[in-house]
Amino acid sequence: MNLTLHVWRQQNARTPGRFVTYEAHDISPDMSFLEMLDVVNERLIEGGEDPIAFDHDCREGICGTCGVVVNGRPHGPRERTTACQLHMRSFADGDSITIEPWRAKAFPVLKDLIVDRGALDRIIAAGGFISAPIGSAPDANAIPVRKVLAELSMDAAACIGCGACVAACPNASAMLFTAAKVSHLGLLPQGQPERFDRVRAMVAQMDAEAFGSCTNHEECEAACPKGITVETIGRMNADYVMASLTVGRRAARLGDSGGG
């Protein structure tokens, strides 16, 4: 198939970018979207031009590294599909395809279609973990977990951190991402000790990264390649309210003999 690509080209974070049009000839419908870009890049390199920079790693939809906005949809037109798992048969011969990077202040463009998603890493670092004693591995199943909570937690843990939710959100909000990370730990017994401190710390970091705020458009849910739902956001909000209402609560007064 033959396609016309309009691709965002930008040398680096400091220079302004622009759209450049390329003709992509003889593309097999069985190629993935990224393989199509590989072919275009091969030809650019042969012609002595700078290839289009785009992020990718696993190419099997599990690492969350890839991600571009294709014709106005993050990861392209197919539901629950990362750009690396999108095939060219989703397009028609002669189509025009506009390819843009994720757009958010918190995601500065590094080059062409590659953005810096370090902000998401810093949200995780702020609280997306549990504290556990080191030593020998605990017995499997030593802590009972209610089946439905284990499933809900796994649903949230499916987040691959690609950032499509931010890209899709009209407010460039990272609430779906943050809520998924808050949720998957907060639903499990192992996540309880830090549950309320975690949600406050992660929301604070999310705000500090200058993401926007949710207005419940649900564009994030529609764009998420892993089908994370906005229920996670409601769960995060409820935890945040509870955490804020109970913060600073003391179990014993100062001067009581309880040790530290």
Partner: peptide, 20 residues
């Protein structure tokens, strides 16, 4: 205002899906 500031540069093409 925070949300507007969060996306200084918009998309050339944008196709809403779930929003109303």
């Amino acid at each position: 205002l925070d949300s507007w500031a969060a996306r200084p540069q918009g998309y050339r093409l944008w196709e809403p899906k779930e929003s109303t």
